[in-house]
């Protein structure tokens, strides 16, 4: 193991242990690691946006492809910084409105055409008994689950009578789904914990063994 590799492992182990120290109680080591993490994450986004947006979509097309008109979205982007000056902060609304309007236009179509219609079509399953008991049962579960969940989230009418009964079935379905998600999340977090414990035991432990 080279000196640089040792340094990488020791630095990583120090920060991992500092973060885990929060399990005992809040302390300066945790605060230090937490602030470093926040800073690195913010810096990560600067690098990402600079390379993928500012360089690739603004500077390179402007200077290399002669698309001079891209100076306008660049200026609109800079207008966002007017937020820091209370007197002129309203100017940033122009850029924000462009983003909001554009996103709204994209969403209006993509949500209806890309999600609502295909998901509704996928729910219209065949209940033909010739498909076999298992397939029909699965189709029934899916159809009942989708309808009852949608009814449960329908708040324009009081949940009474048939609506109330269907909403009650919706709660059962939702509980099954939340349980499944919770189980999945617990296992994913435990898997990450195992990964970090392995790093400390084998990578860092191996490094200590080599040193002493």
């Amino acid at each position: 193991m080279t000196l640089v590799e040792q340094l990488q492992i020791w630095l990583g182990a120090f920060l991992v242990l500092s973060l885990f120290s929060f399990l005992y109680k809040d302390n300066p080591f945790y605060k230090f690691a937490e602030h470093i993490f926040a800073g690195l994450s913010a810096g990560y986004y600067i690098g990402l946006i600079w390379q993928n947006v500012i360089i690739q979509q603004l500077i390179d097309p402007m200077f290399d492809q002669g698309r001079w008109w891209l100076v306008f979205p660049g200026l609109l982007g800079l207008l966002m910084f007017a937020r820091f000056f209370p007197k002129w902060s309203w100017i940033s609304r122009i850029s924000l409105a462009f983003i909001m309007g554009n996103t709204a236009g994209v969403f209006l179509i993509s949500q209806l055409h890309g999600i609502v219609l295909p998901q509704t079509v996928a729910t219209m399953l065949s209940l033909d008994p010739r498909n076999g008991f298992g397939t029909v049962l699965l189709a029934l579960i899916v159809v009942c689950g989708v309808i009852s969940t949608l009814v449960y989230f329908y708040f324009s009418k009081e949940h009474k009578g048939i609506l109330g009964g269907t909403a009650k079935v919706g709660i059962w379905f939702i509980m099954i789904s939340f349980g499944a998600h919770f189980g999945y999340t617990v296992m994913a977090r435990i898997s990450l914990l195992i990964g970090q414990v392995r790093f400390l035991m084998f990578d860092w432990g191996g490094s200590i063994k080599q040193l002493f």
Binding site: I49, V53, Q57, G77, L78, N102
Partner: peptide, 12 residues
């Protein structure tokens, strides 16, 4: 592309 550029500035 315009929206992507302005969006990049909002993250900055």
């Amino acid at each position: 592309q315009w929206a992507s550029i302005i969006g990049g500035f909002t993250l900055l």
